[in-house]
């Protein structure tokens, strides 16, 4: 491989990861602004125009905070846990195609598709790496030498296990429709046959619910659960280590939003515009708008609903979502086989 080709890959990768981290920063501001608006308040509006520089101020504040490690904490795992939480969250976005066609990188004479790694087992990669994020939470809670942290971690692990099943089954139903695990193939199939949400509304709703649980977001944020567990797994964390958990959570939210967009809403497809005639920048805007809707939904739900009880969480996951997801998967499979034969 030529040097310029490698450079082009690096540039696209940096674009995607930089974008992910930028979205995480923007989300930390959006979280506070949207919550304020929903409570008749204004939110942070002092730093920069409209408070837009607030994430930078937060970052500087985090950097200068003292790092506290509790007595009896496991020194290696305690330091490793935030990294293990943030890095997989950033990695999951790699398989999500965030634009159509190819972009030509100016000055390099190279063109790359707008996806970091279009691997043939993209869906499995997403599930595998996405599930790694829970290791950070479990190790962080365990290494803190704090019983509340550990409780939060255990809850998070059990929750992840319960909802991963429904998530995977609803994802599998969408994959059955296109017959490929490759994300770009799923997008192409949707360009030809219409968005998957038209065929798989049940799977869409199950994925929507399960992705809240997978990212440990309200109303399923049992890993943090302030009133019961102080701060859950990140009780003992401060400074940049806490910021890593924080950023990891938002990155995971963005990756999940990107995934549900790709699977059910046609990803970067622009409605009523053929795939060949779509300029790459328009498809990126379409992708951003679609995922933005889900990112807003995350905030919207968080500031509207109370937290579930833990038994309700398990009841919803195992007794309601899983049977429906299984049934949906079986029916989809049967219909696809019958239609193909």
């Amino acid at each position: 491989m030529e040097f310029t080709a490698i450079l082009a890959i690096v540039i696209v990768t940096l674009l995607a990861f930089g974008g992910t981290v930028a979205v995480a920063g923007a989300m930390s501001l959006a979280e506070r602004r949207v919550s304020a608006w929903m409570q008749y308040r204004i939110g942070p509006s002092r730093v920069g125009p409209l408070g837009l520089l607030q994430p930078i101020a937060d970052l500087i504040k985090f950097m200068f905070k003292e790092e506290v490690m509790p007595e009896g904490a496991h020194p290696l795992l305690f330091r490793l846990a935030p990294i293990l939480s943030a890095v997989p969250a950033m990695m999951t976005f790699a398989v999500v195609p965030f634009g159509l066609g190819k972009i030509t990188i100016p000055g390099l004479n190279e063109s790359r598709p707008l996806v970091v790694a279009d691997i043939p087992v993209g869906a499995i990669y997403f599930l595998a790496v996405g599930s790694l994020g829970v290791y950070g939470i479990i190790l962080g809670g365990w290494a803190s030498n704090n019983k509340f942290s550990l409780l939060g971690s255990i809850r998070s692990g059990a929750q992840m296990l319960s909802y991963e099943l429904s998530l995977t089954l609803s994802m599998a139903a969408a994959i059955l429709m296109s017959g490929s695990l490759q994300m770009t193939e799923i997008v192409k199939h949707q360009a030809e046959h219409g968005w998957n949400i038209l065929y798989q509304p049940v799977a869409f709703i199950i994925f929507l619910i399960a992705m809240f649980a997978e990212t440990n977001r309200h109303p399923f944020d049992f890993a943090e659960c302030e009133p019961e567990l102080v701060g859950g797994f990140h009780t003992e964390y401060s400074s940049m280590k806490f910021a890593m958990f924080f950023v990891g959570e938002y990155c995971a939210m963005f990756a999940m939003s990107g995934m549900i967009t790709t699977l059910f809403l046609g990803g970067p497809l622009v409605p009523f515009l053929p795939i060949e005639q779509t300029p790459w920048w328009l498809s990126v805007i379409a992708f951003a708008m679609k995922s933005g809707v889900f990112l807003f939904l995350y905030l919207w739900v968080r500031w509207s609903l109370p937290r579930f009880k833990y038994d309700q969480l398990m009841d919803l996951g195992w007794k309601k979502l899983l049977p429906v997801a299984l049934l949906n998967f079986a029916v989809t499979g049967t219909i696809v086989v019958l239609a193909n034969s």
Binding site: V34, A36, W37, Q39, Y40, I42, W300, W303, S304, L305
Partner: peptide, 19 residues
């Protein structure tokens, strides 16, 4: 009924703040 609650908070988004 979650949907009802969601629509309520969405309406509040556009109301005048009291700050």
């Amino acid at each position: 009924p979650i949907v009802k609650g969601l629509f309520f908070t969405f309406r509040v988004l556009f109301r005048k703040h009291i700050v």
